[in-house]
Amino acid sequence: MDIKELFAKQEEMKRKNLNAKAEKESEITKVMTFYIGDQVYGIEIPSVIEIIGVPHITVVPGIPYYIKGIINVRSKVVPVIDMRSRFGKEEKEYNERTNTIIIEEGGVSVGVIVDEVIGVIPVYAKNIANSPDRIGVNDNKFIKYLLEMQDGIKLVLDVAKLIYDGDMYLSEE
């Protein structure tokens, strides 16, 4: 590779960085979206460690019904929560689309089992609805904020509450 080529490459990199920067200025964060039932939920990307299928779950006695047990994620023992059951929905059998999202907050890791992971979307300030209170459907204290996107409303989960709130699903209804 000669100097010219290197130079061109550098220029290109710079341009890319600039573009990325411009985009970033309005983009707040990225959110991973997934289905629980028919509703689309999301978790902010910084909290997501990895996404796996549903591995063998070891049942642990003495814990709430929605914590399905513990799994081995690369030599780490992680508890898994079934989100359907956590939100008071009817449980359904896991299939090849079912995913476990490993999330972490403050050094505590938890796996959440969701029906299907959709993808990652960028979030801009304009997308965020003011308050969860405005929408009566499905609101609960684990929701951090609502996203009003063109393809529908997405509920972004509050990972800290999900992990640290021992007092479980409390419907506002």
Partner: peptide, 18 residues
């Protein structure tokens, strides 16, 4: 057991760890 589970009394069930 993972930290998340420390709020439940697993030890009282007769399990000390995994």
């Amino acid at each position: 057991f993972p930290k998340y589970l420390s709020q439940y009394d697993i030890k009282g069930q007769g399990l000390s760890g995994c």
